[in-house]
């Protein structure tokens, strides 16, 4: 065994203050802890409250500039498109279980968003989907699809994800993801990644694959200029209202209102 070495503090330069480009609080003259004015990327918050929509300010917060009309329309439609993963989604069921389980309601959203962070058709798939779209968008979509399908084998069980954000959904094409993509593709604000992804998706249909919801969100957010890692978190934000609504719906219901599988349906595998 070696001798213990002395532990000494490094002189690493750590910041003295938190710094931000997003928010500026002007202190009151009487109390330096109280802000008398707040600005978001330079704009007075009270003015934003009076003059701009929630969508505009949400976009401003993350992108540092207000959106154009076209950007605002597609961003708003994206937020509506994925406002609710639906009651069958694992993240929503986590919210419902928290609600029915009489978990403190303030925990419902963090619980559900943690489940939504997953890599299987969750927020964890969004960043890889952005990177996939960015990397492949210069290739003809059909050729890119053929190249991926060439030699690829469908998994023996479960869904086939041929690329992040694209694949099968319960063994088939996700019809809602496709319809929402069509709605967004038709907008003047449709960008090149959404457009490319749409053609790529169509090239997968014969193999019972296509857009996944995570792919659609990834394409729109990336086209709007959000950074890949931010797109994953924004997908959680976009889905949060639906998760919360379903969780809260169950808060006042008895625990027996949520299924508890019967013993015959609980199979312990050897």
């Amino acid at each position: 065994m070696k001798k213990a070495k002395k532990v000494i503090r490094r002189d690493d330069p750590y910041a003295k203050k938190i710094s931000t480009k997003i928010w500026h609080e002007q202190p009151s003259e009487q109390n330096p802890y109280i802000a008398q004015q707040s600005r978001c990327h330079g704009y007075d918050l009270i003015e934003l409250v009076k003059e701009r929509s929630y969508i505009d300010v949400l976009y401003l917060l993350f992108r540092s500039e207000l959106p154009t009309k076209e950007e605002a329309v597609i961003f708003e439609q994206l937020l509506i498109s994925f406002i609710n993963p639906g009651p069958r989604h694992p993240a929503t069921r986590s919210a419902i279980i928290a609600g029915v389980g009489k978990t403190d309601p303030v925990h419902i959203l963090p619980i559900a968003l943690s489940t939504l962070s997953g890599n299987f058709q969750g927020a964890g798939e969004v960043e890889p989907a952005v990177r996939f779209l960015r990397k492949n968008a210069k290739k003809p979509p059909e050729q890119a699809a053929l190249a991926l399908l060439d030699g690829a084998a469908k998994p023996a069980e479960g869904d086939w994800s041929i690329a992040p954000g694209f694949g099968s959904y319960y063994g088939g094409v996700d019809l809602m993801a496709e319809q929402l993509a069509q709605q967004l593709v038709a907008l003047p604000g449709c960008g090149k990644l959404l457009s490319w992804g749409d053609e790529f998706s169509r090239a997968l249909h014969d193999h019972q694959m296509g857009w996944l919801k995570t792919g659609v969100a990834a394409a729109v957010l990336a086209d709007l200029g959000f950074l890949p890692f931010a797109c994953a978190s924004l997908y959680q934000l976009i889905s949060a209202p639906g998760l919360l609504a379903h969780g809260l719906e169950y808060c006042k219901k008895p625990m027996s209102s949520y299924p508890f599988p019967e013993d015959k349906d609980y199979v312990i595998e050897e």
């Binding site: 710094s19 931000t20 500026h24 202190p27």
Partner: peptide, 18 residues
Amino acid sequence: MPLQCEDIEYHGKPARGL
């Protein structure tokens, strides 16, 4: 660790109007 407004270093866009 409470912070005064000025404990945050702002280096973003200057004040601007809509």
